[in-house]
C-alpha cells in the first residue's frame, strides 16, 4: 500500500529469511571483523583479477545466504543485484552460474537498498516466494575504475573514503524469520551541485537527509520511533553534514544515528580517512551487524538508508556534479 509521497507500507510484510556477508582482509581486521560470515585473507579471492574476485565474492555471499535458509537456487524466483563496475559486470559474471532470473541494478553505493526494496516489493506483491538481493564492491576494482592503479603513488585527501571489499546477499521471502521489511521509502536524486568526487560523504548527505525526512513524514514517525537510523556510507564528513542538514529541518537524529562506513573500519588504526564506502559497505554491515541485533530483538525497528554518489568517470571529467541518492528500508523485529 502506498504511504505518503514516496513510501510503501507492506500489508503482508516480507521477511528477511537469511543473509550473508563476505569481506576482504582489511574489513576482517576491522572492528566488525568477527561478525562477518566469511573473511578472505587474500583479496583476489583465488582469482586472477580484481573484477573476477568481486564476482566470486558475490557468488559466495549468495551461496551462503541460500545455504543458511536451506533454500535451493531453483526456489528463488528473481535476483536483484548490482555493483559499482561498468555495466554491472561483477554481478553478471558473479550470479551467472545460478541461472536465477535476474535484474541488474545500479544505484552506486545505495544499490543494497534498491535491491532490497525491489525484492521486498516483489515478494509482497506475490510474484514469488523468495527473492535474492545482492551487492558487492571491491577496493581493487573500484580504485582501478574510478581513481588510479593501486600502485600509483599519491596522497588521498582526508575526505576520501576507502572502498569496502565486501558483498552482502539477502534472501527476502515469505518464510517466517525474526526480521521483516515493513516499509520502504524510495529516494529521489538530490543534487546540491558539488563536484568533488573525493568527498562523497558531502555529495550524498543531502540525499540521506531528504530520504530520512521523507520517511518520517510519510510514516508519521519521529526519529525515536527507530532504534537506529543507519546510513550506508556517509563517513565522518558526511555524518556531520547530515546532522547539520537535519537540524535545518528541525529533526534531531544525533542520538540514534549510526553509519556503516564509520563502523566497518577503525579510523585511527586502519588509515581509511573518512570511512568506508561502496555497495559492499552497507550490505555487509547490514548482514553482519544490524540484522543479528534485530533478530535478537535488541533493536525493535531500524531505518536502513544506504546512500549512493551517482557519478561516472566520464561525467566527472566533463565537469558534471555528483548527485546523490538514498533509499530507506524499514526493518522490524518480529
Amino acid at each position: 500500500m502506498t504511504q505518503g509521497l514516496q513510501s510503501i507500507a507492506f500489508e503482508q510484510s516480507p521477511y528477511v529469511v537469511s543473509s550473508a556477508s563476505v569481506v576482504g582482509k582489511k574489513e576482517g581486521e576491522g572492528p566488525l571483523g568477527k561478525m562477518f560470515d566469511m573473511v578472505e585473507t587474500e583479496n583476489l579471492f583465488g582469482e586472477d583479477t580484481w573484477e573476477a574476485a568481486e564476482s566470486t565474492m558475490q557468488k559466495e555471499a549468495c551461496v551462503l545466504a541460500m545455504g543458511k535458509a536451506h533454500i535451493h537456487k531453483e526456489d528463488v524466483r528473481f535476483l536483484f543485484g548490482g555493483d559499482l563496475l561498468r555495466q554491472g559486470i561483477a554481478t553478471s559474471l558473479g550470479v551467472e552460474a545460478f541461472g536465477i532470473p535476474m535484474f541488474g541494478l545500479f544505484g552506486a553505493c545505495s544499490t543494497s537498498g534498491e535491491a532490497l526494496a525491489l525484492a521486498s516489493m516483489s515478494v509482497a506483491a506475490g510474484y514469488g516466494d523468495y527473492m535474492l538481493a545482492v551487492t558487492s564492491s571491491h577496493f581493487g576494482s573500484a580504485e582501478k575504475e574510478f581513481r588510479f592503479p593501486l600502485s600509483y603513488a599519491n596522497q588521498r585527501p582526508l575526505s576520501a573514503q576507502w572502498t569496502v571489499t565486501g558483498s552482502g546477499a539477502f534472501l527476502v521471502g515469505k518464510k517466517r524469520s525474526h526480521v521483516r521489511i515493513t516499509g520502504i521509502t524510495v529516494g529521489k536524486i538530490v543534487d546540491f551541485g558539488l563536484k568533488d568526487s573525493q568527498n562523497m560523504g558531502a555529495c550524498m548527505a543531502p540525499a540521506a537527509a531528504d530520504t530520512i525526512e521523507r520517511n518520517l513524514k510519510d510514516f508519521g514517525r519521529v526519529p525515536d520511533d527507530y532504534s537506529r537510523i543507519i546510513t550506508g556510507d556517509l563517513g565522518y564528513v558526511g555524518q556531520s553534514i547530515l546532522f547539520d542538514l537535519m537540524r535545518g529541518k528541525e529533526i534531531d537524529i544525533k542520538k540514534n544515528h549510526i553509519d556503516c562506513g564509520m563502523m566497518i573500519f577503525d579510523q585511527n588504526k586502519q588509515d581509511t580517512h573518512a570511512g568506508g564506502s561502496g555497495c559492499g559497505c552497507a550490505a555487509s554491515v547490514l548482514s553482519s551487524y544490524v540484522l543479528p541485533k534485530l533478530e535478537r530483538g535488541e533493536w525493535k525497528r531500524v531505518l536502513f538508508v544506504p546512500t549512493g554518489a551517482l557519478m561516472s568517470t566520464v561525467s566527472f571529467n566533463e565537469g558534471e556534479s555528483v548527485p546523490g541518492i538514498a533509499h530507506g528500508i524499514v526493518l522490524e523485529h518480529c
Binding site: Q155, P157, L158, S159, F192, G193, L194, D196, N199, A202, P206, V237, S240, I241, D244, S321
Partner: peptide, 21 residues
C-alpha cells in the same frame, strides 16, 4: 538562485572537510 545555493553549499562543505596540514 540555484547557483548561489550551490556555492553556499560548496563553501559550507569546504569548511566542514578536514584537510592535510
Amino acid at each position: 538562485d540555484r547557483k548561489k545555493q550551490q556555492e553556499a553549499y560548496e563553501n559550507y562543505v569546504k569548511k566542514k572537510t578536514p584537510v592535510h596540514n
